[in-house]
Design a protein around this nucleic acid. Structure first.
Lengths: 229, 229
DNA sequence: TGTAATAAGTGACAATTATCATGTTTTAGA
DNA sequence: TCTAAAACATGATAATTGTCACTTATTACA
């Protein structure tokens, strides 16, 4: 009973908030809860999705392979986000792969229910529209950052972003721990270059590290750096 | 009479195709036709839009200023596209500026009509959703290209894209003529770097130039280059 | 618990791209 | 049609970033 969508707070953060009781019941009856282990894929670029994933817990990376064989991380998902909407709406293959960064708990909702509800509940459509609109704006920002900022600036920005969106633990380390490889794939740089810059930031006292973990020490200076000063 | 939306073929290419006769009539009665001269702005980043623009003719660039003061072109619009949807849907300031690349003819449709129709016609919502979904996918592709490809690769890709999407004139030059500056802002590079590469491509016989005009000579080789060979 | 496998880190060097300086051509408008 | 401004072009040089080769942790698991 405790796993009914009706009682799930998560849906307040995504477009499912626009569903009425009946619709919610239908979603809940047909949804499938899944646990995804760190490192496992939810779906892979080019696949046909039969539905969307509602993230109850954990973080995943949405990435795409470049023709040079390197992975580019396009977005990190937050708790509460719906994944795979784009592909289901466009009735298209996914253009991205989704991989769990830590252990995840997700609910799978079939595309039939989604498109049904889209056709009958204008509020739901509007909510989805708003979310897509938001994603599109963020994507535009990423494009500009990627093309106009240096790797160092993008790095600084990434640390600030991770702190803002995922917080830090009691010792001041970022709650979300990423591999150096993942960092490189977010920032769009060679792993070695990125590691070198981490060392540099550390030497300058902007961040601290402990194994994989990274902590932000001088957020203001990082922000200035990100803005190009 | 010939300027009624009901008779306008353009709408077949965008989400307005989902409107029924009544809705179309309402749009048509309230729409304002505008002519925009080359170089003029339709709207500017940070503005609040009171509606959307339906492009009847001409091409515009959607761009964003980076914190370093350089402009990044995020997208070129095609005839038939609707501009400003994202901002109207999210009830948000525009995140992009739109500037005419050549003389344009557009129709302005107020946001009241748009949101009204979104609330009452699920097919229209779905159409808009599909268009946003498409834009989002394209944006993801741009992100990957920007971060994983070299300037040279992006250049090659840009020429192919322009040929595919805007065609060429009787002499084999790209129909859409851009300034070197615009090219640089699409590709995300310094203007000087870009000009140098145009020279290089020309020397290698991949393209030809005549003043501002550029013509694709070896599309296959350009494609290989873009893919990294 | 030992040992591959994987990830992190560093140095040397090469390739790419930006910047600055300057000259030439084109364009717009008085 | 003359002239100033803007756009195009190229060289020299510096800064950024990638690549390759290698060493040193860490991690997973047989």
């Amino acid at each position: 009973m405790e796993n009914r969508c009706e009682n799930c707070i998560i849906r307040q953060f995504n477009s499912l908030r626009a569903l009425n009781k009946d619709e919610l019941k239908r979603v809940s009856d047909s949804k499938i809860s899944k646990k995804i282990k760190k490192g496992e894929a939810l779906f892979i670029e080019g696949q046909k999705l039969d539905g969307v994933f509602c993230v109850r817990d954990g973080v995943s990376k949405l990435s795409k392979l470049s023709s040079n064989g390197k992975e580019q991380i396009v977005k990190l998902t937050n708790k509460g986000e719906i994944m795979g909407q784009r592909s289901v709406i466009a009735e298209d293959f996914t253009n991205l792969s989704a991989t769990a960064i830590n252990d995840m708990e997700v609910c799978f909702i079939t595309k039939e229910i989604i498109s049904n509800t889209l056709n009958t509940n204008p509020n739901f459509s509007l909510e989805v529209l708003r979310h897509l609109a938001h994603d599109l704006k963020e994507a535009d920002d990423v494009i500009v950052n990627m093309s106009q900022k240096t790797v160092k600036q993008r790095m600084a920005e990434a640390f600030i972003y991770l702190k803002k969106n995922y917080g830090e633990d009691e010792n001041g380390f970022l709650s979300l721990t990423l591999s150096r490889d993942d960092y490189a794939n977010i920032v769009g740089a060679a792993t070695e270059s990125l590691i070198r810059m981490i060392s540099e930031f550390k030497k300058k006292g902007l961040i601290k590290t402990e194994g994989k973990k990274i902590g932000v020490l001088e957020e203001d200076t990082l922000q200035e750096l990100a803005d190009g000063f």
